[in-house]
Simulated assay, not measured.
Amino acid sequence: MYAVFMNGGKQYKVKIGQILRLEKINHKIGKIIEFNTILLVKKNKEIFLGQPILKNTVIQACIYKHGREKKIHIIKFNRRKHYKKKQGHRQNYTSIKITNINLFKE
């Protein structure tokens, strides 16, 4: 069984027990969160497809850890113009563990 859901403008394919990195979510570690914008669920050989999202379907996840990605370097450079600009960026993330996929929750 797997599901495709949307969070922060991105789509993620997940299974139960999978650990996934998302953009920062402002909740404490250990808190259970729910995602309601599920686009697709595949259970055994059946595929449930939302138009655009599935109603009464919820993915539950537990917040596993917060952190920051590795630094990326942004360099802007124009030759012969005496112009060079260097910048760095570290993106915050939240790791979650998928605990349950409730299909057609009442």
Score class of each variant (00 low, 15 high):
Ile101Ser: 00
Tyr64Gln: 11
Ile101Met: 01
Tyr12Cys: 01
Asn7Gly: 06
Lys84Gly: 11
Leu20Tyr: 05
Leu22Thr: 02
Tyr64Phe: 14
Glu23Met: 03
Ile29Cys: 06
Tyr64Asp: 12
Asn100Ser: 11
Lys45Asn: 15
Leu39Trp: 02
Lys43Gly: 05
Ile74Asn: 13
Ile63Cys: 04
Arg79Thr: 08
Lys81Leu: 07
Phe35His: 02
Ile32His: 06
Lys85Gln: 10
Val41Asn: 01
Lys31Ala: 08
Pro52Thr: 06
Lys24Val: 05
Tyr83Val: 07
Lys65Ile: 07
Lys65Gln: 09
Glu46Ser: 15
Ile72Arg: 15
Arg21Gln: 12
Leu39Glu: 03
Ile32Trp: 07
Thr94Lys: 03
Gln18Val: 05
Arg90Leu: 10
Gly30Val: 03
Lys10His: 06
Val58Met: 06
Asn26Ser: 12
Asn56Thr: 11
Ile74Gln: 11
Lys10Glu: 03
Arg21Ile: 06
Gly30Arg: 02
Arg80Thr: 08
Ile72Phe: 11
Arg21Ala: 05
Ile33Ala: 05
Glu69Ile: 05
Gln87Ile: 13
Ala61Ser: 06
Lys97Tyr: 07
Ile96Met: 02
Ile53Cys: 06
Asn78Phe: 08
Phe5Lys: 00
Arg68Asn: 10
Lys55Ala: 15
Lys10Pro: 03
Lys86Ile: 15
Lys84Thr: 14
Tyr93Ala: 02
His73Trp: 14
Ile32Asn: 07
Arg80His: 11
Phe5Asn: 00
Leu40Cys: 06
Ile98Asn: 00
His73Arg: 13
His82Met: 14
Ile75Thr: 12
Asn26Glu: 14
Asn92Asp: 12
Val4Gly: 00
Arg90Lys: 09
Gln87Thr: 15
Lys85Trp: 06
Asn78Gln: 15
Lys71Leu: 10
Ile47Leu: 10
Asn36His: 12
Lys76Glu: 04
Lys15Val: 14
Phe77Gly: 09
Cys62Thr: 13
Leu40Trp: 01
Phe77Thr: 05
Ala61Pro: 03
Leu22Ser: 01
Ala61Cys: 09
Lys42Leu: 08
Leu103Arg: 02
Lys24Asp: 06
Lys15Asn: 13
Lys86Met: 15
Thr94His: 01
Phe35Arg: 01
Tyr93Val: 00
Phe77Met: 08
Lys76Ala: 07
Lys70Ser: 13
Lys70Ala: 12
Asn36Arg: 10
Gly50Cys: 05
Gly30Ile: 00
Tyr93Arg: 02
Ile96Thr: 00
Thr94Asn: 02
Lys28Val: 08
Glu34Pro: 11
Ile25Glu: 04
Ile16Pro: 02
Glu46Asn: 15
